[in-house]
């Protein structure tokens, strides 16, 4: 009787186990499998050890894509985090203004990612786009399909427009959770607005800002759909980020082995950096409420 009841407990864990197996473990293991073999066709495969890893790690185009990726994610965090916090601080606390600004902020987040790319591709086209044609009419030559710097400016604008609202919404939620009494107490102490921000609002927002930072880092590091639609990785290779390059290797050249090795390295980089960010932010906030 006891034995039977003990075993039944496994059935309760089973659904989660199956979901995780299909969503994470099996795909990951498949990729590991591919990364160690040279595949010629169905049933024709040769074990090659870490050959693909060596090849991928010495690939110059991958190095360039990685550097590009770091610059992109770095810029994204540097712009979106402070901007999101500033927007959250300026948002009305209550009334119709609060509802309106929440809806306005949520709009970019509701649009599918490839549609975002399409919208901005048309918006910034130098011949018919409102932004592209408008800026050219002002006498500034702008063409994101020809100039790498214009392509980067367009990508950053799109990225900031798309994702800063997420940071702002999270920061806003964090701000609203601070009891009013903190601000009263600070006013009684005679604290300045800057001191209130630095010593009350910022420490109290640490939790949500950590989440915002991790989400924005991971998402921007994995960016694919928007630059794929907007620039296709060009002009040249100047906006070819890691995932775009990965797809070129895997689907374009059908090099499954190197692509799998590449995926694993990519995955480990994100895991390592996310862990680092998390640890740093946790340590900074040690002992705070």
């Amino acid at each position: 009787m006891d034995k039977w009841e003990d075993n039944r407990a496994w059935f309760l864990v089973l659904p989660v186990f199956i979901i995780v197996a299909f969503s994470a473990i099996i795909p990951l293991m498949t990729v590991v499998n591919y990364s160690l073999q040279d595949i010629f066709g169905p049933g024709q495969r040769v074990f090659v050890g870490v050959e693909w890893f060596k090849e991928v790690l010495s690939d110059k185009r991958l190095h360039e894509a990685l550097v590009r990726q770091f610059i992109f994610s770095g810029l994204v965090l540097l712009i979106e985090m402070p901007l999101g916090i500033i927007i959250a601080l300026m948002m009305p606390k209550k009334g119709w203004g609060a509802s309106l600004s929440l809806v306005m902020l949520a709009l970019p987040l509701l649009i599918p990612w490839n549609v975002i790319g399409t919208i901005w591709m048309i918006f910034t086209r130098p011949d018919i786009g409102l932004f592209g044609a408008g800026i050219n009419a002002l006498g500034i030559a702008f063409d994101h399909t020809a100039s790498p710097s214009d392509a980067w400016v367009t990508l950053m604008l799109m990225e900031v427009w798309h994702w800063t609202p997420l940071v702002a919404l999270l920061a806003y939620a964090g701000l609203r959770a601070i009891p009013e009494a903190y601000f009263q107490a600070a006013r009684i102490d005679g604290a300045s607005a800057w001191a209130i921000f630095k010593y009350i609002q910022l420490p109290k927002m640490r939790g949500v800002l950590t989440i915002a930072l991790l989400l924005r880092f991971m998402d921007s590091f994995l960016i694919y759909a928007e630059p794929f639609v907007l620039t296709g990785g060009g002009p040249g290779n100047t906006t070819t980020f890691l995932s775009i390059y990965l797809v070129k290797v895997a689907v374009g050249q059908f090099d499954l082995g190197p692509a799998a090795a590449f995926s694993i390295i990519y995955f480990l980089i994100i895991l390592l950096l996310s862990w680092l960010f998390y640890q740093v932010l946790q340590n900074v906030g040690k002992g705070e409420a």
């Binding site: 009494a181 903190y182 102490d189 005679g190 009350i200």
Partner: peptide, 28 residues
């Protein structure tokens, strides 16, 4: 309120989260 001589204690425990107890007491 900044120009008055007032101190207040609330229901909630209100202290500066990133200050030590010493700095909290010393803040005013």
């Amino acid at each position: 309120v900044r120009k008055r001589s007032i101190a207040m204690v609330y229901q909630q425990f209100i202290n500066y989260p990133s200050f030590t107890i010493f700095d909290n007491i010393a803040s005013p």
